[in-house]
Design a binder for these strands. Structure first.
Lengths: 344, 344
DNA sequence: ACTGTGTCGGAAATCGTTTTCTGCTTTCGA
DNA sequence: TCGAAAGCAGAAAACGATTTCCGACACAGT
């Protein structure tokens, strides 16, 4: 069994006092260069690693932050995680990641678990369909928290980084309309999911602004599973009238929609125009390549990390509680063909 | 500021001693039902959460395990993580995830970080190209560790879960050969990466067994970036003679290869047969769907978790230090066409 | 020679829990 | 009625660090 080497042994080895070792290792003033180097050498020789638990207990702080996700097996979320992780690691923080597997009830339990681990900050991107209990819990926990793509922060220590889904979605509708499409359908995530709401509202507004029909059966909402997205897409595409263009909100939905199109023998870019939200590998490699709404996921992650660190270290200095990041429309072959008006 | 409620306050509230509270909360014997319920109630009323740090310090154990990856933005790894995470969470463990961003030097530093956090176990899937320093460090750390898809465990407390890449790869070569392909190329990850080695050896052996040519310039190795995979694929496909079939080892390589094919105007399933390792969404949705070697990622994650828990809780009881899981070949349209022999 | 300032040792308190110890009372069964 | 065992209190040690307090010493400048 590898015995843990304590600060006392380092002090012995370096022939100095325990307090001096602590001061030397923590870059405190009033410590000579000679002593510092002697301590460093002894610590290195013994392979000393300060005990995280004792340190944290004394300082009342863990230097670790909790990351709550609906699932990490989602390229968008994992990319954001990577970026945030790098920024946080640079400041000496480590991340404990917990997945609620897209179950709202697990959501609250996960938050409690993280709180009991005494994380010094929280990044939340859970897929909770009704985020209210979580928000209340967050409030009473009093841990600095950054929400990813969720409704604006209400209380103190609650920040939010979100993407401006609306503007690019309006742009997407404009692009389709310019190519002659009048029947533009929409499939989103759960209808109480914040990004879905943002996207749907922009979609509906853009249609109305152009006098295009907003059919109830052409705007559908699926859960976070591919099979459900597939089912909704099939219902949509089998109905009458069949839309000539489709906007899918999210990469899971995209997969379901593509499966549906495949099943119906429809060819993207010929039988139907397709626009996806979130520019993943699939959209670029699909034949034909799929028009997509892109956002800078690295920037999103880094921004979340920066905001959280502000909230933790500056105690109560919320420069800006909610930050909105831009999105852009990348046009590819799935929407380049022009729809001919059949009957006017 | 939310004051932390300590065990002492709970004892006061319940009018019992501190020791009794501790015993009651930890389900110890020799504690009456009446006392237990009184303690429970007091703890609930006060919203008592045991301080993780103090608890861990005393017990010398954190109930948290470290997960080291090259990057979590890889669908294969994130899927494994999800499965392992669920299994570990069920046993009360939480995971701190650290990404080494595919940099071998960061690898060792990350391991040290995790060790200083006093994790009680480790799951390692780093992409270190030369795993030796890591292995040595792991050995001296003495923390129970499960390696994912890495060379067999050497020492005590070092376990390994791997996939049987070889058998399906031989099957893949057989499938291609049966369809008349004689010039079968291969692109893998780094040549000192364990799964790549396994795959390449099986590939070379299968070619030899059939008397098929093993051309040096038709077996290439790329780093873990898509751009590098793209470059290697371009070199491969522009050379003479051009292979009639291609096996790509890994999902990053697949993306690079598809980009190359797209750039050269080659159509999968017509100009070239394609087999991918790892069955991701892209392989199923691509037109035509791509033949792939599939493995049960959930099983892999759960097995890793189970093995690790054994190593942690049973102290020194390695039922089986290395477990090999099966793979299978899923045949799709990318390899269904039959190659006509041009010249015999 | 006096005084300040910087450097360090030694001891002790502290963080919040678990765990052990002694000692007391109650209960139960034969 | 006696003895064993269970149930609990109260105190204290331990985990491994940080932090404070106080005293000692060296060395500089006046």
């Amino acid at each position: 069994m590898s015995q843990r080497v304590t600060i006392r042994e380092v002090a012995e080895q370096a022939e100095v006092s325990v307090g001096s070792v602590s001061r030397a290792l923590n870059n405190y003033p009033h410590v000579s260069e000679a002593l510092r180097s002697r301590v460093m050498e002894a610590a290195y020789e013994l392979g000393y690693q300060p005990a995280f638990l004792a340190d944290g207990l004394r300082r009342g702080q863990t230097k670790s932050i909790g990351f709550l996700v609906g699932t990490i097996a989602n390229p968008v979320i994992s990319t954001i995680f990577e970026a945030a992780s790098e920024a946080l690691a640079a400041k000496g923080y480590s991340i404990t990641l917990v997945s609620s597997r897209n179950q709202a009830d697990l959501d609250v339990a996960s938050l409690r678990l993280l709180a009991s681990r005494q994380v010094s900050g929280l990044i939340v991107s859970s897929a909770a369909e009704s985020p209210e209990p979580s928000r209340r819990l967050l409030q009473e926990l009093g841990i600095p928290t950054v929400m990813l793509d969720r409704e604006g922060a209400a209380g103190a220590g609650l920040y939010s980084v979100q993407s401006d889904h609306g503007s690019s979605l309006r742009e997407a509708v404009a692009h389709l309309a310019a190519n002659g499409h009048r029947d533009i359908a929409f499939i989103g995530g759960p209808d109480d999911f914040f990004p879905t709401q943002q996207r749907y509202c922009a979609y509906a507004e853009a249609l109305r602004a152009r006098g295009l029909p907003l059919r109830r059966e052409h705007a559908r909402f699926a859960s976070f599973t591919e099979t459900d997205a597939l089912a909704e897409a099939l219902l949509l595409l089998r109905g009458e009238p069949r839309p000539s263009a489709l906007i899918v909100a999210g990469n899971i939905i995209l997969i379901g929609a593509l499966m549906a199109l495949q099943e119906l023998g429809m060819v993207v870019g010929r039988d139907i125009a397709l626009i996806a939200c979130d520019d993943i590998h699939l959209t670029q490699l699909y034949r034909p390549p799929i028009t997509a709404i892109r956002r800078d996921l690295d920037l999103l992650g880094v921004t979340a990390a920066r905001l959280l660190l502000q909230g933790i270290e500056n105690a109560e200095a919320p420069t800006e509680p909610v930050i909105k990041l831009p999105t852009s429309l990348v046009i590819r072959d799935s929407t380049r063909f022009v729809q001919r008006p059949e009957a006017v």
